[in-house]
Amino acid sequence: MKLYDYILSPSCYKVRLMAALTGVKLELRPVDFHPGAEHRGPELLALNPAGSIPILEDGDLLLTESSAILVYLAAHAAPEWLASNKPEEAARVQQWLSFSGRLTASLGCARLHEMLLRPGDIGALQAQGIAALRELEAGLVEQAERGMRFLAADRPTVADIACFPYVALAPDGGVSLDPYPAIRLWSRAVRALDAFIEMPGIHRLHELKPEPHIELGKA
C-alpha cells in the first residue's frame, strides 16, 4: 500500500497511526506540500482532483478520503477497529467519521492559517473549531455515562482515529484544549494505545510515575 504522505499533515497522520496500530506496512511517498504545493501539481491532481492528501494506492484501489482509508486498513488487518453489528454503534462510528470532516475544515484550516500562512478568516475558523470541540466533549461525556471510554464503543474504533489528530493539534491553530476535560482524558487513552506513534506536535504519553506508596496503619 502506497501512501502519499506529508509528515505535518494531520490527515496523513491518521493513516500512519491507523497503520501502526493495526500492524499494516505502508510505503510512504513524501509529498512536498509546503513550500512546494506538490499536491496541487499535475501528477497528484491526476490522482486526486480535489488537490488534497492523503491518497492511498493499493493495486487498483485509489482512495482520497482519510475516513475511507482508515476503514480499508481496519477491514484488511484488524476488523475489531470497525463497528460491530450493533445498530447504535455502527451509526455512531459513521456519525463521528463524518464529523471528522468538520474538524479538518475548522481546526485544520485554523492550523494552516496560523502555522503556514494559509489565507482564511481565522476568527470564524476558530469559532467553528470551538463549536466542534464542544460537540465532541459532550459526546464523550455521554459515552462516559454509558461506561464507554471511546467515541463509539468501550474500545477504540476508526472513529477515534479519524477525530484524534485535529483535536490534539488544536493549539497549533490557536484553540486551547483547556476547557475540555473529557477530551483530554480521551486523548490520553488514545495516546496510551499499544503501538501508538507520534507526529510533530503530538507527543507520546510519558511514563507514568509509580504510585506513591502509602502504608496503612502506620503513622
Binding site: Y6, I7, L8, P30, V31, D32, H34, P35, G36, E38, M115, P171, D172, P200, G201
Partner: peptide, 18 residues
C-alpha cells in the same frame, strides 16, 4: 530527495514550535 530533506527539518522545527 529534496522533499525528505525538507520534511526532516520541518519535523524538527515543528517540535520546537509548540
Amino acid at each position: 530527495s529534496l522533499t525528505d530533506l525538507i520534511h526532516f527539518q520541518q519535523t524538527i522545527f515543528l517540535q520546537d514550535r509548540s
